[in-house]
Computed example of a mutant assay.
Amino acid sequence: MASRYARNAIVLGLLSAIGPFAIDMYLPALPTIAADLQASTVATQMTLMAFFLAFGICQIVYGPVSDMQGRKPPLYFGLVLFIIGSVGCGFAQNIFWLIAFRFVQGAGASSVMVIPRAIIRDLHTGTEATRLMALVMLVFSVSPILAPLTGSGLIVVFGWRAVFAAVTVAALAGLVLIAGWLPETRPPEDRIRVTPGQVLTSFGLLLRDPHFMGLTFIGGLGMASFFAFLASSSFVYIGHFGLTPIQYSVCFALNAIGFIGASQFAAFLGTRFGTGRTILGAVWVYAAFAVLLLAVTIAGSDSLVILIVLLFCTFAALGLVIPSAMVLSLEAHGPIAGMASALGGTLQMITGGLMIAVTSVIFNGTAMPMVAIIALCALGALALSLATLRCPVPISHGAE
């Protein structure tokens, strides 16, 4: 049993890492891409927004399809689409084609984000689901820790197009994992015939559920603050503070270590204090450090060390918030876990994509716009937490 649990965590974690891998490897290349394709900073950041919008919107399709056809077929389709987008990005000759193929790439990558969450709900609920989600995120952490360093090395030796060759190889490895190691967790007898009307009815039910919506946007605003960091950090660290791509990758990895390290305590704290109280406490910490960072930045601080330390603390708190909020949002919706995961993921990714757009528009070459957006997201998440978690979250009636 333990070996199957570990196998599921490894496979789901590696699959979930493919999409972020395509983001994190790419970040150190943004200034180089802007120069090579003679594109503006805003246009280059739009390649990120295009990825995230497709990444979010297409989850609406993958979730219901996985409830109807099983979990594995849409995973295969999504990874093939991701490979097509990656190859197209590698051969793009201008920023417009790069934006278009990043959209295709994001459309494929969304399958390996939404479906693993539904698989976790197929297998477990409650604390066991949180524990598996935390283990998945531990495996998933290979992306934000190693991907920027790998991307920097490839960029220095082979140029930025090599990044897309590498993510193509990662997607091919994902196909092998699905075929050989991932069991089908949605057997035929559990599948439901999904019509557009049923999808709309299920989405309507979810949209009217204040706990689901509140928890979705608590996690979504947390993700959005990290997306603002993704969109701006390479330009701030490399352009403003003068770091090399490799030095930037190390700084980026520190934030990932904080996030992933904290996430491993989510199940323990959820068992000890309750998942809702854990989320609320972690959001308070997240907001406190984000507002502190904004305050010292407004006061005139332009210290890279202070920025890194306070971002580390801010994103470490998010490591407790995001996996716990994901699990709790699906807790009462086992029969439509795929659709619930899809809608939640779509709303979160759209929120993140909009924050990337806002950050891009107000970016001025310094850390201030990025820091301001992170603080705004943190305060929004805190307000939602106070409103959502005052009353008990519905308990699932699904089986383990």
Rank of each mutant, 00 (worst) to 15 (best):
residue 119 I to C: 00
residue 26 Y to M: 00
residue 381 A to D: 01
residue 185 T to Q: 11
residue 363 F to Y: 13
residue 199 V to T: 08
residue 365 G to K: 10
residue 208 R to T: 13
residue 225 S to K: 00
residue 239 G to M: 01
residue 220 G to L: 05
residue 349 M to Y: 13
residue 260 I to Y: 14
residue 122 D to N: 06
residue 203 F to K: 11
residue 93 Q to N: 14
residue 137 M to L: 14
residue 226 F to K: 08
residue 382 L to S: 09
residue 337 A to Y: 06
residue 104 V to E: 03
residue 189 E to P: 08
residue 80 V to H: 09
residue 250 V to H: 02
residue 215 L to C: 03
residue 278 T to D: 04
residue 106 G to M: 03
residue 178 I to M: 02
residue 252 F to T: 08
residue 383 A to R: 09
residue 51 F to K: 04
residue 35 A to R: 12
residue 115 I to T: 06
residue 277 R to C: 00
residue 305 V to H: 07
residue 35 A to F: 10
residue 65 V to S: 02
residue 175 L to G: 13
residue 251 C to F: 14
residue 69 Q to T: 15
residue 193 R to S: 15
residue 147 A to T: 08
residue 25 M to T: 15
residue 220 G to W: 06
residue 33 I to F: 07
residue 27 L to M: 07
residue 228 A to G: 05
residue 198 Q to P: 01
residue 24 D to K: 04
residue 254 L to Q: 03
residue 76 Y to M: 04
residue 16 S to R: 04
residue 139 V to T: 14
residue 179 A to N: 02
residue 228 A to S: 13
residue 128 E to K: 15
residue 241 F to K: 02
residue 268 F to A: 06
residue 38 Q to D: 13
residue 221 L to N: 03
residue 316 A to N: 04
residue 229 F to M: 07
residue 195 T to H: 02
residue 189 E to N: 12
residue 361 V to P: 03
residue 393 V to K: 10
residue 361 V to T: 12
residue 363 F to L: 11
residue 196 P to W: 11
residue 297 T to F: 00
residue 45 Q to A: 09
residue 293 L to K: 05
residue 394 P to C: 12
residue 207 L to V: 13
residue 74 P to F: 00
residue 139 V to R: 10
residue 339 M to L: 12
residue 122 D to K: 08
residue 75 L to S: 01
residue 108 G to F: 06
residue 121 R to V: 11
residue 399 A to W: 11
residue 286 Y to D: 08
residue 396 S to I: 11
residue 365 G to E: 14
residue 64 P to I: 04
residue 146 L to R: 09
residue 359 T to R: 12
residue 236 V to S: 08
residue 315 F to S: 06
residue 59 Q to Y: 06
residue 100 A to S: 12
residue 200 L to E: 05
residue 105 Q to C: 11
residue 395 I to R: 14
residue 19 G to P: 02
residue 268 F to Q: 10
residue 296 V to P: 02
residue 264 Q to E: 12
residue 139 V to I: 15
residue 377 C to E: 05
residue 368 M to T: 15
residue 168 T to L: 04
residue 233 S to I: 05
residue 219 G to L: 07
residue 238 I to P: 07
residue 44 T to I: 10
residue 331 E to Y: 06
residue 109 A to V: 11
residue 306 I to M: 13
residue 303 S to Q: 03
residue 5 Y to W: 15
residue 143 S to G: 02
residue 220 G to A: 04
residue 213 M to G: 07
residue 112 V to P: 04
residue 112 V to K: 02
residue 17 A to Q: 04
residue 315 F to E: 07
residue 373 I to A: 03
residue 248 Y to K: 06
residue 278 T to P: 00
residue 351 T to P: 05
residue 395 I to V: 14
residue 171 A to I: 10
residue 247 Q to G: 08
residue 161 R to A: 12
residue 114 V to P: 10
residue 395 I to E: 12
residue 371 V to T: 09
residue 27 L to F: 06
residue 335 P to K: 11
residue 396 S to A: 14
residue 357 A to E: 00
residue 179 A to F: 09
residue 15 L to H: 09
residue 110 S to T: 12
residue 314 T to D: 04
residue 15 L to C: 09
residue 121 R to Q: 15
residue 34 A to T: 03
residue 367 A to H: 11
residue 171 A to Y: 10
residue 300 G to K: 03
residue 363 F to E: 13
residue 219 G to C: 08
residue 384 L to E: 03
residue 289 F to R: 00
residue 387 A to F: 09
